[in-house]
């Protein structure tokens, strides 16, 4: 029994540590990336990887209680609203005429013409 407990402890610790790592990496990316469109992706590292790992680690720490249910509801909610608000920001930026600085690979396809697939 204590053996299983130790395994769960180590598992949740590693989940929380890697979650914290992704949170910090996302923030570093938001600071380092050169323009808005790249920063979107840095923010989504925090919003998917960091949130999932941290909440999963806390779920294991809480065990089978009401707290786990609450954590899962928070996770579900962030799972739905995170992409939605990211999409809303990106869409608003596109509508207002903000474009990526360098479309390096395909200079012709700025997304407003038909794809040549």
């Amino acid at each position: 029994m204590s053996n299983l407990d130790a395994v769960l402890q180590i598992l949740s610790w590693s989940l929380i540590i890697s979650g914290s790592f992704f949170v910090v990496v996302g923030a570093i990316g938001m600071l380092r990336f050169p323009d808005f469109w790249a920063r979107l992706h840095a923010a989504s590292v925090t919003e998917s990887g960091g949130v999932i790992l941290l909440l999963a680690g806390m779920c294991i720490q809480a065990g089978f209680t009401l707290i786990t249910v609450k954590l899962m509801i928070i996770g579900l909610f962030l799972f739905i609203t995170g992409p939605t608000s990211t999409h809303a920001v990106a869409n608003a930026a596109l509508v207002s005429g903000l474009r990526p600085k360098s479309l390096s690979t395909h200079p012709n396809s700025n997304g407003l013409e038909d794809d040549k697939r």
Binding site: V89, A93, L98
Partner: peptide, 14 residues
């Protein structure tokens, strides 16, 4: 830009 700031506010909230 404004959208950088909105993105930062949203991320800060998370």
């Amino acid at each position: 830009t404004l959208y950088d700031r909105v993105l930062a506010v949203n991320s800060f909230g998370t």
